[in-house]
Structure formats: structure tokens, C-alpha cells
Design a protein around this nucleic acid. Sequence first.
DNA 1: TAAAAAAGAATGAACGTTCATTTTCTGTAA
DNA 2: TTACAGAAAATGAACGTTCATTCTTTTTTA
Lengths: 194, 194
Amino acid sequence: MAALQKSIDKRNALINATIELVNNDGFHATPMSKIAKMACVSPATIYLYFENKQDLVNKTYLEVKSSYTAYAFATYDETMSVKEGFEVIWKRIAEFKLKEDAYAMFLAQCDNTPMIDEESRQEGIRHLQPLLDVWKRGIKEGVIKPMSDYMLYAYAINPLSFLTIAQNRGALVLDDKQLEQAFEAAWSSIKVCE
Amino acid sequence: MAALQKSIDKRNALINATIELVNNDGFHATPMSKIAKMACVSPATIYLYFENKQDLVNKTYLEVKSSYTAYAFATYDETMSVKEGFEVIWKRIAEFKLKEDAYAMFLAQCDNTPMIDEESRQEGIRHLQPLLDVWKRGIKEGVIKPMSDYMLYAYAINPLSFLTIAQNRGALVLDDKQLEQAFEAAWSSIKVCE
DNA sequence: TAAAAAAGAATGAACGTTCATTTTCTGTAA
DNA sequence: TTACAGAAAATGAACGTTCATTCTTTTTTA
């Protein structure tokens, strides 16, 4: 157990160092030697845990994406109404993006650059299924406008990425009041008007 | 005149090569030698037009941002009503992002990574002033919800970036009908309900 | 004590940038 | 118009550095 435990710690340290350094400098401007140093490990040791640099960043992406979606759906269950379900998920996502802003920044960078393999990108998308299911249900019930998943995501969820990046760059404070406004805007853009 | 003309052509070729290669591979994975080759120019020649690689990408960013905002505001004038003004600007932006999808991809990458100098980023933001003015007017007239510029941008404009990237990755087709839907979603999220 | 894990130094390739040289342009004098 | 000199623009090769990865040796584990 001690040995395994130690390995998991090192792996986590490598993943966390990758996130922090890539956020600051970008993927290709982050040398393996720097990641190793921040994780208190020899550069050679990275290759015991990951195949190469690309594998390291792919795995980091999937790990962050998993913790993101796990957090997002933790308090949702399928017996909720569409509106309630959406609100619960949306607010968990917002909470995650504010609390785990380094993760949010990292995901934004992965989603907007060619730094991740297409295969890992596809796998990351699959994690969102429960949200897509809420939307499908909402459209069937006539509560949500009949739009494609991409369009719904663009207006209901993606703006949060922009807001957290703006907040991270010091241009905006997202307090509770602003967040409630943001939720209202999100819901307004996808709901069917009564 | 011949000499000057030639120079502008080369400069444009370098900027265009930068956009295409950075879109495909990312900033740091794009060597100067490759940019030079695509622009049919010697690597050394790049340094006659730009100080260094960072300067090249900063200037490229500002050039793209300028053509983006010039296009966005070309048909808008201040005598329009808030709703009409917003609609005109929004639709021009959408048109630009669909027609000039390479530019749109490039801007998305600049806005979500540390690849651009902070100074150039700030200058790029200033170009959006006319849009912020419409919003200010809309809030004063009670037509637009009193939200910060960042929030308004997040819900009304930024979703278009997500949609064009999705379209570019082959995951979505943004036809006229979808676009009208998207505009409705954008307007719904920021307007004051009657 | 044997195997696994980790380390640091070494390697070779790739990169941004510069240098020495050649080519092209421009204005002037015949 | 032609010839040409000086300046400007452009080039390909070269330089020094940095980086991802591997190799050999040492340390830790069981």
C-alpha cells in the first residue's frame, strides 16, 4: 500500500503541476523539466507514469474533465423536474468553475486549442450526457426551445467559461448576485416563454 | 510604389500563414521556418517585418481583431434604436465568424491562452467600444437588463465563438434557421421581459 | 537480495534568431 | 534611354540554446 500510495501522490503532483504551468505559460511553453521540478521529481520519472508529454496532457485533461462533470451532476437526479434539474446542474457547474478556477482555465485552454488529441476530446464530451438528457426531456415537455445540444450548451453553459476567465484576469467579480443574474440569463436564453 | 506594394504582400502572406498554422498546430508548435515556407519567404525575412515571434503573433492578433470589429460595426450607426442596433451588430458578428472562420478560430485561441501579450489583449478589447455603448444606452432605456459588460458579452456574443468552433470541428451546421434561433437566444438572455 | 522505482546526466533533434552574402531596387549622370 | 552606384531587401546557412526523451547508475521496496 505504501508503494502504491506514493505513486498516486507523485502522479497527482505531476498532474497538478501540469495544470498550473500550462495555465500560466501554455502547453508547448511548459518544459517537462519544469513540470518535474514543480512536482519534486526527476524528469525521467515522468516517463514511469506517462508515455510522453502528449499523453501527460491528454490524461490531465480527462482527469480534470471527470472531476468537473462528477461535481456538476453530484446533486442531480432524474426524478427532478426539467427546470429544477437544469438549475441544480447549472449552479453546481458555476460553483465548480469559481472554486476550482485553475481547472476551469485549463479546460478552456484545452477546448480552444489543438493541444489535446481528438480522441481525448471526444471522450471528454461524452461525460456531459446527463445534461444532454435533461435538455432532451425539456424539449419533449415543451419547456426548452427545440435547439441542438451545441446551441443549448453555447448559451446556457459556455458563458460561464468566459465569466470565469474574465474573473481570473481580474476584470470582473462574480458574487452571488451576479451569479443569480447569470443564471437568469442562461435560463432565459433556452426556456420557452410562457 | 512597386517596392512598397511588394512589402505589404509579404507582410500579409506572413500574417495569413501565421493564422493558418497557429489554428492547426498552436502557437508554440508552429516554427518560424514553417511560417516562412508557407509565405514563400526566407526565415530571416520575417525579422525585417517583425521584431520576433511574439511580435508577429501580437500584430497578427491586432490585425485580425481590427478586421473583426470593423466588419461588426460597418452597418451600425448611432441613430438606430437599441434593439435594432444590437441586432445589426450581432448579425454582422455572426456573419463574420461564419465567413471568416479561420479568423474566428484564431481569436478564440488568443482569448483563451497565454499566447498574446497582456498589452495587446487590452488593446484588442478597446475595439469593442461601440457595442458597449449600445448596451449602456439599452440599460438606460430599460430595454436591456442591468448587467456588467462582461456578463452581457458572455451571453450575447461569446456563444458565437463556441458555435463556430463546433461548426469548424464538423459537429454542427449553422444555417440561417439555426442562426435566427441563436439570435433569439442571445436577445432573450439580455433583454428586459415586457 | 532481487526487482522496482527514481535519479541525474547525456543525447540528438529542433528551434528562434543572427550573420555574411547576394539580389533587387532607385535615383542620377551621361 | 542606358549604365551604374549605393541602399534596401532578401536569402540560406550557421549558431547557440532549449527541449523531450533515453541511458546508466543509485536508491528504495518487499
